[in-house]
Amino acid sequence: MPRIDDARRGDRITTILDAAERCFVRSGFHGATMAAICAEAGMSAGNLYRYFPSKEAVIEGLCERDFAEAAEGFAALEATDDTWAAFRDLAAFHLIDEPRESFAMWIEIMAEAARNPQIAALRVKADLFIEEKLRGALGMAHRRGHIAPQADIERGVQFMITFSEGLMLRRARDPDFDPVPHVDMLFDILRSLLLTPLAASNDNLT
């Protein structure tokens, strides 16, 4: 019996989060009220509030779901011998295959982080999560000998984060933007950073 209850609870949480995501994409963070999310999910307010007591809690639920999905993707890197190809496929999944509307929602949430301490805390948590996963992936590539022994992994991590956030912003604001060549560019530059020994890279900059 508890297993059935757990399954039902999981289904309801999924229903709420899917409904909330549609509302946030359609109306923005402030425009998407809890009443609208209830209506979209086909639930009463009392039922929905049992799972998520506030809009901030809904955002946290969406973030946790994204964390779980991303963690699965990074874990899959360990099961392949071609680290660079698998890494590129993972980036394509998140930066190319993801619907443009998802990036618009991300921009809304990031803007809210400047005004809302709870959302700001989630932003910090998300940043730390992504940094940790990228360091782990590049560290694994380093141990396998797929990047230069003296490569600056931290430099690669920060480059990927900065470039990816810019790409996400472009996708959100420009419906005609094609992310494919830019993801290719991301990996061309990342390879030049990490496949070239650090000393030689620094010499080329002087």
Rank of each mutant, 00 (worst) to 15 (best):
residue 4 I to D: 10
residue 9 R to F: 00
residue 11 D to N: 11
residue 11 D to E: 15
residue 13 I to W: 02
residue 13 I to Q: 15
residue 15 T to H: 09
residue 15 T to K: 14
residue 17 L to H: 05
residue 21 E to P: 00
residue 26 R to P: 01
residue 28 G to K: 03
residue 35 A to M: 10
residue 38 C to L: 04
residue 42 G to A: 13
residue 46 G to M: 01
residue 48 L to Y: 00
residue 50 R to T: 12
residue 50 R to V: 09
residue 53 P to R: 02
residue 53 P to C: 01
residue 56 E to H: 04
residue 58 V to I: 15
residue 61 G to H: 01
residue 63 C to K: 03
residue 65 R to K: 13
residue 73 G to Y: 00
residue 73 G to H: 05
residue 74 F to T: 06
residue 78 E to P: 00
residue 82 D to Y: 05
residue 86 A to L: 02
residue 93 F to K: 13
residue 96 I to T: 04
residue 97 D to Q: 09
residue 97 D to H: 13
residue 99 P to M: 05
residue 106 W to T: 10
residue 107 I to Y: 03
residue 107 I to E: 12
residue 109 I to F: 05
residue 109 I to C: 08
residue 116 N to Q: 06
residue 118 Q to E: 15
residue 125 K to W: 01
residue 130 I to P: 00
residue 135 R to E: 07
residue 135 R to K: 12
residue 135 R to L: 10
residue 139 G to T: 13
residue 143 R to I: 07
residue 149 P to H: 03
residue 150 Q to I: 01
residue 159 F to S: 12
residue 160 M to S: 14
residue 163 F to K: 03
residue 167 L to F: 11
residue 172 A to M: 08
residue 172 A to E: 06
residue 177 F to L: 04
residue 181 P to W: 08
residue 182 H to P: 02
residue 186 L to H: 12
residue 194 L to E: 10
residue 197 P to K: 05
residue 205 L to I: 11
residue 206 T to I: 03
